[in-house]
Design a protein around this nucleic acid. Structure first.
Lengths: 225, 225, 225, 225
DNA sequence: TATGAATGAGATTTCATTCAT
DNA sequence: GATGAATGAAATCTCATTCAT
């Protein structure tokens, strides 16, 4: 699992010699993740985390610099995965395959991200919550979108446009629509996991279909006055 | 203005004799709104609100039951507007006009909601933040979607489907896609007001076009294996 | 009393409108001073201070930024008095009088500082303790010796040397000896107030006599091999 | 070496079989001494000591009963040396030599103590700091002045007075002036080792000269009204 | 009505010390 | 003997709320 590797890389300082997350750290992170997802970061106390993790309060601070350090340890690995992977997929789909079609690209993207969301519901709930709460975390999330990645994304979109596969709108708008559609799915998944009656395959089909049709070049533009 | 009426209804007890919001209350609400939008409810202290409003801390508690009461006074009016209006629009667009087309409906909806978002950026930022942070506020938002409104929405969508104007997907999925697209716009608008380079008219055009194309009935379905 | 004025000037921010230290602040400072003098800053808890002052713990932080802010409020006024006053005395004694003698100067200086120590035993105990404990407070004390004051002191000493009233040693050494003699008195006074059997007048006489004889120009130098 | 013997006596239990201080103990003491001199006992944590010493935190407690035990191990040897030696010197100077002069006595005393201070700067800084901070350590230091030693000192001073070599003041005052002058030197040496521009020989000369002149019998007393 | 000093429960964090390995 | 993860008591500080003026 790439996420676990990422955590290891990021928190090497506080990990055991062999580069493993310790049992205690796992228990703390698991307890905190569950609580942060249930309530919110601010509403969860360190005492509560320690209790749920079955360790002493001091142990939290032996293993993480801060209460905030625990939050970071939960968010960082996901944040370092979500966007890079997204754009990687995008890259692969277009460069590798013979079929340089919007179809292929979008299906690949949606499939991947939907699977990702399903695997990481709790962490994503925490990240979502922080994203909307805190200018700094928001900046951190946006900071993941490095200029290189953006440039890469632009290249891909420009190619698809040239190939007549993508509607000729500003790239930023296209990205926004892409994110919106995936994000909307994510939000429902994360906040109301129980409501979800459609299976994954079907969901991927709808989202992809919606995006492909929404972003294909137009035969005749809509008129708004 | 429905907002003012709502606040009045909610805080009738503490309003001036003439049933108006007092100057002091206005200053407190304005200060709190600005601060809650900048940071988050939890990160803003009552001291800070009082300072920004230019009143004493105690004055907050003469005018509102609670710190939470201030938040409520900010959220309530918007929450009682946003969804009802949305569905109203939907209703009007379809029932009133001769042109019972997806075009007409979506353009009307998008135009209205985009204008609404532009007028209420700060309040929406607060609501967004609370929505993702606080189970109860989330429930409150979702509670606005009363069964009747949902039923109404379903009627509209079914009609459009029958008229061959709307793709034949589950209504919940269609609603999700609608919300996603509008919500994505909202999020960008609200969190990154400075980034926005497209003017409103153009934005409405793109969003509408995207939705119409994405939700029109298919000639040939996309194949996913 | 110039000390009280100084406190007011320095802590104007946290004082009442009329520039007075409030009753509460007085009680907190008195309690803290007594405790810091008894034990040491580190060994005294905020709970303890609050209890002794008869206020709630939170009240401390309502009136002072910090636990350290309380310490500052105790130390600063003394620190802003002790050295300036010392050198002022020195200045007046030499410049004003006709008798520009070492006698006059030293008697004035010793008299003044001994009286000062007697009035401010507790505060001086706290400052002494901090001076030896903490690089920063030490720097703060030394920071009081502004270049101008030092220059002034040098002028005075040079004049006395020229007048054949002062031994021709490096000024720094002379200052050190002056401080040592006064400081030694201070330490005994502050740490063992009960031991003191000599009255103030007598003490001034001994210290002055010792200094005058020790710092008068030599007839025949001592030989050390 | 009397210091090592003292540590051995005090920590006999935790010493190696051969009664020697172990390498580990040396490293811990060295690290702690440096840190206590830099900051203060209270401000230095056991973690910090362990880090600087290059051992585990637990190791501290295998070698010393306490954090306080480390401090004791640093202070005890000096404390058992400083006063006894001082008074020993005093004794020798007067009893042994033919020249029972104040000169001889003071030069011997100053020379010895200045050399001592130069050798033990760091430890003395720690002791100074503790002396002013901690009632118990202060008592311990003063406890070193046993009645016998005091009696001995009084004998010496009385002899010098009888010989017309020492001013006829109360012995306690004379002792205080002696301590002040040496202490003032010590403080400067210990707190501002870098400021010191005079060499040791010169310093001894000044201090001795100052003391001899200050404490010689007067021809005509100073008049203070 | 408005004030702002006072409150005290509760939050996070530190740190000397223990103990299983 | 050495380790270092775990401990938990205690310390400092925050903050919504109350209440006398």
């Amino acid at each position: 699992m790439s996420e676990i590797e990422t955590i290891q890389a990021y928190y090497a300082a506080s990990l055991g010699k062999d580069g493993q997350i310790t049992k205690t750290q796992q228990r703390i992170l698991a307890a905190a993740l569950a609580l942060f997802a249930e309530k919110s970061y601010e509403e969860v106390g360190t005492r509560e985390i320690a209790d749920r993790a079955g360790v002493a309060e001091g142990t939290l601070f032996h293993n993480f610099v801060n209460k905030n350090g625990i939050l970071d340890a939960i968010m960082q690995p996901i944040m370092q995965n979500i966007l890079p992977t997204m754009l990687n997929t995008l890259d692969q789909a277009v460069l590798d395959g013979d079929s340089q079609t919007l179809d292929a690209f979008i299906v690949a993207l949606v499939t991947d991200r939907v699977a990702f969301a399903e695997r990481n519901q709790e962490s994503l709930a925490v990240i979502l919550s922080q994203f909307f709460n805190n200018e700094k975390d928001r900046a951190a999330v946006m900071g993941m979108v490095s200029p290189e990645i953006l440039a890469q994304a632009n290249v891909v979109m420009d190619r698809l446009k040239t190939a007549g596969e993508l509607v000729d709108w500003p790239n930023r708008m296209i990205l926004q629509l892409l994110f919106s559609t995936l994000g909307g799915y994510l939000v429902e998944k994360v906040l109301y996991p129980d409501l979800n009656q459609l299976d994954t395959k079907q969901t991927v089909r709808y989202l992809s279909d919606f995006l492909v049709n929404g972003l294909s070049p137009r035969r005749m533009p809509l008129h708004v006055d």
